[in-house]
Write a protein that binds this DNA or RNA. Sequence first.
DNA 1: ATGGTCGCTTGGCGA
Length: 267
Amino acid sequence: MKITTWNINSVRLRLPHIEHLTKEIAPDIICLQEIKVITDLFPGEDLAALGYPHQAVAGMKGYNGVAILSRLPLTKSGTKDWCGKQDCRHIFATIDGGKAGPIEIHNFYIPAGGDEPDPEKNEKFAHKLQFLKEITKWTKDRRKKTANRVLVGDLNIAPLETDVWSHKQLLKVVSHTPVEVAGLNKLQAAGPWIDAVREIIPPEEQVFSWWSYRSKDWTINDRGRRLDHVWVSEPLQDKISEVQILRDARSWEKPSDHVPVTVTLNL
DNA sequence: ATGGTCGCTTGGCGA
């Protein structure tokens, strides 16, 4: 089973990119963030035609929005609000994993957090930390409910030194500050969650999934960050067989600033 | 140190 996470930054603008993804990778499940469209205008029929008739969508006008697309039927799908906001940052669904049993998939778009890494001065950063805190409590409560769980998404945090182009230069840059990394580590420990990408790609090796639009040519200095993650619960750890980071997608015409991250599970 | 580019939609916000 192939599961892809991708911050698409407008699903309507990038339908051809999703088609391209299906040809290159052929995921069974695609988890999208920043669809930037209300649920009523989500291009569900076009995506069904690409082979993903089973969909769970939580969209709002202009900002955020998450979706799960699947070749296989979804059960018990839904969305959940955090921090008292209805801002479409979490969608979940259960998929039949065959003899492995049901698999619960959670797709998150964690707040980016603004520019100033001080929760006293910047309410967006405070929101990001609060979001982490709330889902950490939630994941503790969920851990006994379903054995097979997957958490994916644009978590907007690059935890390891090798998850950014320069650890030293990004220590005060939102996405790599010690307080965020500590928060993400707490969340991971609370699952507990296995970082599937780092099970395959050694932690010593740099790997990125996002490169800023604000650079003339993203390939020149390769100043990226690994903001997009695929985590699995312990029963799925020994089923992780492959990771694909589709760097090429950053060079497609009118690209998203994120590329698809795919994990294959041998169920 | 600052500004750089996108996508939502048309003024300005969020990333």
